[in-house]
Design a protein around this nucleic acid. Structure first.
Lengths: 194, 194
DNA sequence: GTCAGATTAGGACGAGTGTCCTAATGTTTG
DNA sequence: CAAACATTAGGACACTCGTCCTAATCTGAC
């Protein structure tokens, strides 16, 4: 693995665990095992590496979503797969929250020009979820449903991070899976209060 | 208003808008209009002022919740009142997210000793919501319902901050209000997938 | 082997950080 | 008025930050 790739990987992890602002060049360089001078050869500014990290996240998200699409023919299973991220990544989320939501919010507070870039990861999930609901027969409501699923996972992630309650995550995921089942059993109630 | 109180107020706002770590002593002092030396007279360390800010948030939250309890005899209206925070504070949430969730997560990433202290604000809301549901006749499920309402508002806040979509907030609040209505019409389905 | 280009190491730079000290000013009490 | 205390201002301190420069080393083409 090339040096540049190692830097992006380390920064990706550190930005997630510590946040963008508190993570220093020195910390990244130390993680990779290179000097700060070498660092500068690959990235001129801290914002450059942030953009590279976001780009890497966009790419890996696209790959993951495409993999889910290939892995299951049933859009409902695909949506479940997304919902269960909060279980798969339970430990990290309890410790650091959702990587997408927390980075987006940090950049918003910093009034950082790359905020919109980071929101792109959210948009990737949103669009992918919308497509699943469209395949399930929803039309105008598909985007609403996608946003609802997104909001659900963000709420779970935030509270899981705050209270460190793993049972809560399990319960809520079960609940959403049941909601999905009911939703697909009676599409007419897609806009109900559930 | 005393200097100390002004400092806490300014720090409270800046911690919300910029985050705890990126907010410097100098920025707070400048906002209040005092020297950094004077600052040190009131607070020895940055962590001291963080604790003071958290304490102020706990106090104002308690006051707000007590006011809601006095302002409405119907627990259902009280819960609605909570849910509609995301509308009342729409502008701030779009710009900076939820003050409780974002601070808690930042402190988690910083591995900061005051993280648990900050979670106390969440606990205040959680307990208060649980009490409302208990008054509404729920027993074992009351805490689950409280967490569900909390998770809802956190999900909305995060996506509102990411996408800057005010209509989405309105839609979701309406949806939760309808869910509340249905929930109270048929308490037996409190644990359904809604 | 030589030389050009890619890559790395190490340190310098000014700016900003939290922290701390000291002197000056205000304010209250006797 | 005078003395004791509370409050403020301003700057010094050591440190870290992102940035940048230069010299050394590695790598591959001829």
């Amino acid at each position: 693995m090339g040096t540049r790739e190692q830097i992006v990987d380390a920064a990706n992890r550190l930005f997630y665990e510590q946040g963008f602002e508190p993570t220093s060049f020195a910390a990244i360089a130390e993680t990779v095992g290179i000097s700060r001078g070498n660092f500068y050869y690959h990235f001129k500014t801290k914002d450059d590496i942030l953009d590279a990290v976001i780009e890497a996240r966009l790419a890996s998200t696209r790959t993951m979503l495409a993999g889910w699409a290939d892995g299951s023919a049933d859009p409902r299973d695909r949506v479940r797969r997304f919902v269960e991220i909060v279980i798969t990544n339970r430990g990290d989320i309890e410790s650091y929250g959702c990587p997408v939501g927390t980075l987006t919010n940090e950049l918003a507070k910093l009034d950082h020009p790359s905020r919109a870039h980071a929101v792109g990861v959210f948009t990737l999930f949103r669009t992918w979820l919308r497509e699943q609901f469209e395949e399930l027969g929803f039309d105008a409501e598909a985007d609403d449903l996608a946003m609802r699923v997104l909001a659900f996972s963000q709420g779970i992630a935030t509270l899981s991070n705050a209270f460190h309650d793993g049972d809560f995550v399990d319960r809520e995921v079960d609940r959403v899976n049941r909601w999905l089942t009911e939703l697909l059993a009676s599409p007419a109630t897609a806009d109900d209060a559930s």
